[in-house]
């Protein structure tokens, strides 16, 4: 029963992590830091999902990356590219229209 519920929740959340990353990385961030940020803002994500996702988005041109070697521990910083910002806007619009559609559904019920 719980497993089914989990599957449905996962289905619904799939894709929101991409949107959250694109928004958060308008200010550059690195893997673990982003993982913490996502968790704190209610987008709990597994590390083994996020790290490959960042590389995929970079490969698709929505993120750019740069190694920062100023600190003791060199880290790969990602930043949302112009294409990434456009994608984030499109996805956000879609999310809003979905929210409107769902609230229309629930108000009709009441």
């Amino acid at each position: 029963m719980d497993e089914m519920l989990d599957t449905h929740l996962q289905e619904l959340r799939r894709g929101t992590v991409v949107l959250a990353c694109l928004h958060l990385l308008r200010t550059p961030g690195y893997g673990y830091g982003l993982l913490e940020q996502l968790g704190a803002r209610g987008f709990a994500t597994d590390a083994n999902t996020l790290y490959p996702l960042l590389r995929r988005l970079e490969k698709q041109g929505y993120l750019t990356s740069e190694w920062n070697t100023d600190e003791a521990r060199p880290r790969k910083f990602y930043r949302t590219s112009d294409a990434g910002i456009r994608l984030a806007d499109t996805l956000t619009d879609e999310w809003r229209s979905l929210t409107t559609a769902i609230s229309a559904l629930t108000t009709e019920e009441n």
Binding site: Y30, Y32, G33, L35, E36, Y51, W67, R73, R75, K76
Partner: peptide, 17 residues
């Protein structure tokens, strides 16, 4: 090499935390 370095940093960060 790139994945190795990034993964190393990510694991170190998580362990440190």
């Amino acid at each position: 090499a790139d994945v190795r370095a990034e993964l190393q940093a990510s694991i170190d960060d998580a362990v440190e935390a």
